[in-house]
């Protein structure tokens, strides 16, 4: 597949979101995620270890919530995922794409959808379009993640968000 061959780069507020919630911070400006202790001391914490993790999870959340977002260039921040990492996580990336295609409301019949989801060869153009599509979902998911966690000021807040997340996405929960 021609998808996931190049390094991934996010910009603007989505890049900031990535950096904020990841352990692996980088870029020119350090964007921190800080909570306060009982004793009023502030501690920097993270939710996700790598940017690829938040990419994938953001993508799935975007797919589950059917939320997309356009590329943002409002700030000069950027966040990059290197090719080596992408290679390592190729299986998960493919799986993400598959879920995206299979879940999409479309007039396509099951067979066509399945063929599209599991398509091995794709032209460069097609890959680019599909990857962008996927990344729209990722951006949407990132925004949702940020919406959930941005208000967190204490450990308790984070734990409560975790409760919320697990509840939202647990299987026994029948939404819509």
């Amino acid at each position: 597949m021609a998808m996931f061959k190049k390094q991934i780069r996010f910009t603007g507020k989505h890049a900031e979101i990535m950096q904020k919630y990841c352990k692996d911070k980088g870029g020119d400006q350090e964007i921190k995620f800080t909570v306060s202790n009982n004793s009023g001391l502030n501690k920097d914490i993270y939710i996700f270890e790598n940017r690829i993790d938040i990419y994938l999870i953001g993508g799935m959340i975007g797919v589950l919530e059917k939320r997309k977002a356009e590329i943002d260039r409002s700030t000069s921040t950027y966040a990059t995922i290197m090719v080596e990492i992408i290679d390592k996580y190729r299986n998960h990336l493919n799986r993400l794409y598959q879920h995206m295609i299979l879940a999409e409301d479309s007039e396509l019949d099951p067979d066509t959808r399945i063929k599209k989801a599991f398509k091995v060869q794709m032209s460069d153009e097609e890959s680019e379009i599909e990857q962008k599509n996927l990344e729209d979902y990722v951006r949407g998911g990132l925004e949702i993640i940020d919406e959930i966690f941005c208000e967190c000021k204490t450990y308790e807040d984070i734990c409560n968000c975790m409760f919320e997340l697990t509840e939202r996405y647990q299987l026994s929960n029948n939404d819509d």
């Binding site: 999870i57 799935m60 879920h99 299979l102 879940a103 647990q170 299987l171």
Partner: peptide, 20 residues
């Protein structure tokens, strides 16, 4: 990637992928 897999599972169930 435990959390990711939860989301995969959720998607599978939510969108009735098995049925599909």
């Amino acid at each position: 990637s435990a959390f990711l897999k939860i989301l995969f599972a959720k998607s599978f169930v939510k969108y009735n992928l098995k049925e599909l």
